[in-house]
Amino acid sequence: MSESEIPKAPRLFPDNAAIVRIGEGLLDRTLPRADWTHEAHIAATTWLVRDRPDIAVDRRIAAIISAYNVAVGGVNDDSGGYHDTITRAYLAGVRAHLAPRDAAEPLVACVNALLKSPAGFRDWPLRFYSRAVLFSVAARRGFVPPDLAPFPVPC
């Protein structure tokens, strides 16, 4: 593995409140754009799946993230903004990570463990997709099934 392939250490969260702030800021579109990092994406989706059963994540995630992107001055087009296939790959990783965990575990411990696991790495979707498929316009605009391997199934 070359130096450029070594995963960067993730920025971990100090407490539950920091994660809830990210999730609520995403939902109400007040999260500063600079705070919408890879780690924030993972934290917000984990919080939504685990702690917000009132939100139909699979049905609403595209609209939630797309609306947030526009609210902070971004776009959702063929080359930028919301990427459906990457989002859904990480949702599969979040669900596989949550399945065997104790529901009483603090949110921060759960999110930080996910960020330190392979499913939290920036290149994790490339375990399931070729670059050509993952970074295609079709994959950005809608879900494209994996072309290399199936997603992990929650236990």
Rank of each mutant, 00 (worst) to 15 (best):
M1P: 07
S2K: 06
E3W: 11
E5C: 07
P7Y: 03
K8T: 10
A9D: 11
P10D: 03
F13N: 05
F13S: 06
P14E: 08
N16M: 00
N16W: 04
A17T: 11
A17N: 09
A18W: 04
V20Y: 00
V20Q: 05
I22A: 00
G23L: 06
G23S: 14
G25V: 13
G25A: 03
L26M: 04
L27T: 00
D28Q: 14
D28K: 12
D28A: 12
R29S: 06
L31Q: 10
P32H: 05
R33H: 08
R33V: 13
A34C: 05
A34Y: 05
A34T: 01
W36R: 14
H38R: 10
H38G: 05
E39T: 05
I42K: 01
I42R: 08
A44S: 15
T45Q: 14
T45E: 15
T46S: 12
T46D: 13
W47H: 02
L48P: 02
R50E: 07
R50P: 07
R50S: 13
R50N: 15
D51C: 15
P53R: 10
P53K: 08
I55N: 01
A56R: 13
A56E: 15
D58P: 05
D58T: 12
R60T: 14
I61G: 01
I61S: 11
I61Q: 01
A62G: 04
A62I: 07
A63E: 12
A63H: 10
A63Q: 11
I64N: 05
I64T: 05
I65A: 01
I65W: 06
A67I: 02
Y68F: 13
Y68T: 11
N69K: 08
V70E: 12
V72Q: 07
G74E: 09
G74L: 06
V75C: 07
G80A: 15
Y82M: 10
D84K: 04
D84Q: 13
T85W: 05
I86G: 01
T87N: 09
R88W: 02
Y90S: 06
L91M: 11
A92Y: 02
A92S: 09
A92C: 06
A92H: 12
V94S: 08
R95H: 12
A96C: 10
A96E: 10
L98C: 11
L98M: 09
L98I: 09
A99N: 09
P100F: 04
A103P: 12
A104C: 11
A104F: 05
V108C: 02
A109H: 14
A109I: 12
C110K: 07
C110F: 00
V111H: 04
N112P: 11
A113N: 15
L114T: 11
K116D: 15
S117Y: 08
P118C: 00
A119M: 07
A119F: 12
A119K: 06
G120V: 09
G120F: 15
F121I: 03
W124Q: 01
P125N: 02
L126W: 02
F128V: 02
S130Y: 03
S130W: 13
R131M: 05
L134G: 00
F135A: 03
F135G: 01
S136N: 00
V137T: 13
V137F: 00
A138Y: 06
A138N: 08
A138G: 03
R140P: 02
R140E: 07
R141W: 04
V144D: 03
P145A: 15
P146W: 02
L148Q: 14
L148V: 01
A149V: 03
F151R: 01
F151H: 08
F151M: 04
F151G: 03
V153P: 00
